[in-house]
Design a protein around this nucleic acid. Structure first.
Lengths: 348, 348
DNA sequence: GAAAGTCACGAAAACGTTTTCGTGTTAAAA
DNA sequence: TTTTAACACGAAAACGTTTTCGTGACTTTC
């Protein structure tokens, strides 16, 4: 159970000073070739690697970025992590993850833990509870302490930082346009409560697309789901609501859902009620998920390019970290990732 | 852009020594109540938090655990992370993730990066390439340097460490038994190449269940998929192979697949060929995934309890980290997580 | 009134690096 | 021969903590 070897030990063994060892390993011109060879050979033999913690302390930077997300068991978020990790590693950074579980307090605690020296900056997406409470002090405090933040997907204009967002509005618009172009006359929207910014924007896109084509939106075609219930109860409530939707609107021929699950559920219920997808009812979802591809019929969706979001967020953060002269001329950018409509079997 | 405040700064402001500040904040009896109050008030005002890096260096432990997985965009692995994170946080640890992308060299590099002081121990699942190459030197080297490792899911007996595994053998056996009990006579197996240990064990479970019931396994009912192809090519090849399977075995009435995708594909093809699921063909998959639940018909599966695996792995690791007197009496345990058969619509 | 004890605090080392600066030795220049 | 320059190396500070030990100023005790 021998510990990792340190400069000090090498120095003692070779009867030179610590400074000499350090310099020899970094190939400093100050050190004679003889000594260099001796030291380097010894270091290689004992597999010396500098201690990251000591380096971090000395350099006051950890080369680690923290990522805080509401949950990881979610295709979108794990794909974002994947993107962050990709460019982080490429640029010599590690990634440390914190999960908020959609809880405000866990988000705060997690950020505080990491902000005390463990990382150089954050990539994060806010929890639903934070959005609801509209309490953003922890973000602002973190930033005044000189730790940059890049937010993605769920953002808010009250926090002034770099952001990477999906073009939710236009994505939704494109999807609903597609339904209209495909001949749908009566298009339902299944969405979340408005405090989740993305839900709101997608709803607006839906409305705009209808308006564009001179269709008057009907309140009874819009289903806003309260997500505060637990999962099982939620699913059941959701299912019966969707069923009601179909029953009370017999000529419904299109559904746009703001996520994958809602879309799949809509398809399932439509078919159970005897409607054929896509011939009687066409369905489009919003997501990057794996369900859409493997459903039968497979689901047409608005793709969010989650991985690309992660990559871009990491780029922004690392760029900021490595730009030394961050004088007061702070300028924050918001990058918009455009969406693609991936056509599959649930539309004509 | 003011930096975080340090003990030194507080000391200077209050005109006391660093030691006094440190002790006052930790409520040492050495310090007078007056001074304590003064210091604590000041620290609170400026929101002092000790620097983690400095603490790590001093204590020679980071309270961070590293987790290395082949990929994160995978329900099973992200669920494991979720479990690790849960207990890690509960016990005061952070989690830092590394992705190997199923590549041996990325696994090695990632481990080396983290092993140099960034973390106290590893939770990991080996990459397929590592399993294929059977090169485990990096694991053993890490351990001889005093850094404990807990492996999960994909393990190998050549590495001596704590392990958490799924009871693949019995899980598979249970599933196939179920099919037999439900009246299936001709049961196919869709599996991976044998070098992935879990694939091998599940295959054995399948064979054993058949044997138990006096059924002689037929080679033409066993499909071993080569996963080295890229995803799209893979899917197509797979699809035609499964189609052939059904066509050349017209009386096929049961399918056991070692993962979710294979199972879903089997259902899809069966239905396309005019078989009803579950009346003509019953299907069972092996997984914890989200596809099974939302498929139509929903898929009966062997549940692996991924989150529980993560929790257990983290427990094992932290226990080991916190057991000081780790003299030569190292004893490694292998925890087996039992599986559950989750019955859904794809079986009778 | 001297010895002993208590109290409240500070100095310094340690964790493992990197880097600046100083210094002794040798070789080159005057 | 003397001065200067080049060379090779070491001492020490710094990053931010915690902790051991020492010490001066009082207070108590006999």
């Amino acid at each position: 159970m021998k510990r990792k070897i340190t400069l000090k030990q090498i120095a003692r063994e070779l009867d030179v000073s610590i400074s000499t060892v350090s310099k020899a390993l970094r190939n400093s011109a100050e050190i004679s070739d003889d000594t260099k060879q001796k030291v380097q050979a010894f270091a290689k033999l004992y597999n010396y690697k500098p201690n990251n913690i000591a380096l971090s302390l000395k350099n006051r930077r950890t080369n680690t970025i923290g990522i805080i997300i509401p949950e990881i068991v979610h295709h979108f978020f794990s794909k974002v992590i994947s993107g962050v990790e990709l460019v982080a590693n490429k640029r010599g950074y590690n990634v440390i993850v914190g999960l908020s579980n959609e809880s405000f307090s866990k988000e705060v605690i997690n950020m505080e833990m990491l902000a005390n020296g463990s990382i150089d900056g954050f990539v994060l997406s806010m929890s639903k509870e934070t959005l609801k409470l509209q309490d953003y002090h922890h973000f602002n405090e973190t930033m005044t302490q000189g730790m940059p933040i890049v937010m993605f997907d769920r953002v808010v204009s009250d926090v002034n930082c770099d952001k990477v967002i999906v073009d939710d509005f236009n994505g939704a618009k494109k999807a609903v346009r597609k339904l209209i172009d495909n001949g749908c006359q009566s298009i339902a929207l299944i969405t979340t409560e408005d405090y989740v910014s993305v839900g709101k924007l997608r709803t607006q896109g839906y409305l705009e697309a209808l308006e564009e084509h001179g269709i008057i939106p009907k309140a009874e075609l819009i289903l806003k789901i309260d997500e505060s219930l637990d999962y099982e109860a939620h699913m059941e409530a959701l299912e019966s609501e969707i069923e009601d939707l179909f029953k009370s609107n017999p000529n419904l021929d299109g559904v746009f859902a703001v996520n994958e699950i809602y879309a799949l559920l809509a398809m399932k219920i439509a078919r159970r009620l005897g409607h054929d997808v896509p011939n009687d009812v066409q369905v489009i979802g919003f997501t990057d998920g794996v369900l859409s591809k493997h459903a039968t019929p497979s689901l047409t969706t608005v793709s969010q390019h989650a991985q690309q979001m992660g990559e871009k967020a990491a780029e922004l953060l690392i760029d900021k970290l490595e730009k030394e002269f961050n004088s007061a001329d702070e300028v924050f950018q918001t990058v918009v990732i455009t969406t693609d409509l991936v056509e599959r079997e649930s539309t004509k």
